[in-house]
Design a protein around this nucleic acid. Structure first.
Lengths: 186, 186
DNA sequence: GGTTATAATGTTATATTATAACATTATCTA
DNA sequence: TAGATAATGTTATAATATAACATTATAACC
């Protein structure tokens, strides 16, 4: 079973209540072996690139690592700041080219409504990202709900529209931040 | 009945086959009294602002007119170029402040994945925009499919997430551009 | 192993989109 | 009409992204 990056990811629908609870607690602050899921993501990326005959270079791998390692969506210039400290001559194209590669291979998603990038836990099957984005804590959780996907395809079909990449970004409040808002009496 | 801006809008699900056909033909090139739906949109905006006790100033009205009048989504700096020719001292804040107002009152939407703005045909009930966006011709059509909305709410509920603004942007090919691609044998 | 083609990255410059901060003008309320 | 508030003007700059060309690394072939 996949080990999700639950520092900034939500419990996935389909998890048992106990799994949900465990993950929610983790999200709320207790420990989580992030290096484990990070390494797993990097290994999966390497395998996928080998399979596709493309190169996960040092730079690309490092950018993917940074995107995955962040505790929330990471801007291109955040990544650049880190790279600048590590290699001479890092510049915007350095980052954007690596991100273009990672995007093209489904290894990261871009949060279109906010510009930053997040690692994708499931790069093998190409898919548009479905995100829950908390407007208070900034956390983004990737969903992949087939009900949503089917509803979209049905609706597009009625209009005669051929679906390429469906972008779903649901802004709102995560469970944790809902509690806090309620606690403040607002 | 509302008269949609079908120069850049799609047939809406729920229309009869005849209505669909009429609209598709219009989209594909035949005549359409665009000034009529534009004026109607401006009148509706004025009425809505009066009802809400806010001011649809000359500037705001003009920006709304430009957004509605475009045959496709319009960038802030496209709007600015037009304004510069009409009033001295138009600058980015001129446009962005007007757009902020129009967005806040649901009179326009922003296409998050591409930055530009489009007029909303249905500002009375606040809603996140659901768009079909053609990657070939750039056209954006607003949907409001309750099936999609319900699927999203159901999925978010499972994750304990409180939905604020759902953003749906479906990139793909419009009926017209599908035909052209097929015609080219690609 | 050396040569050539291709892919990746380096480097400089600039385009595009958006906001901050403060001054001025218009409108509303009393 | 005076004072308060809202809207706009004005200048500067932040944040995000790409263009264009030079250089370096890798792959593929001999």
């Amino acid at each position: 079973m996949l080990y999700y990056n639950i520092i900034y990811r939500f419990p996935f629908p389909g998890f048992t209540p106990m799994q949900q609870a465990a993950q929610t607690m983790t999200f709320m602050g207790s420990g989580h072996d992030h290096s484990h899921c990070l390494n797993e993501a990097l290994d999966r990326a390497a395998a996928l690139c080998t399979k596709r005959g493309v190169r996960l270079t040092t730079l690309r791998r490092r950018v993917l690592e940074l995107v995955w390692g962040g505790h929330r969506p990471l801007g291109a210039y955040d990544i650049l700041d880190t790279l600048k400290a590590e290699r001479r001559g890092a510049a915007p194209p350095t980052v954007y080219r690596a991100l273009d590669f990672l995007l093209a291979h489904g290894l990261v998603h871009r949060i279109e409504s906010q510009n930053p990038f997040v690692g994708c836990p499931d790069p093998d099957k190409p898919h548009g990202g479905q995100f829950l984005i908390c407007r208070t804590c900034g956390m983004a959780a990737e969903l992949n709900d087939s009900g949503v996907d089917q509803a979209i395809r049905k609706s597009a079909k009625k209009a005669g529209f051929s679906v390429g990449r469906p972008i779903i970004e649901i802004q709102g409040l995560c469970p944790h931040c809902q509690d806090n808002v309620e606690g403040e009496g607002e």
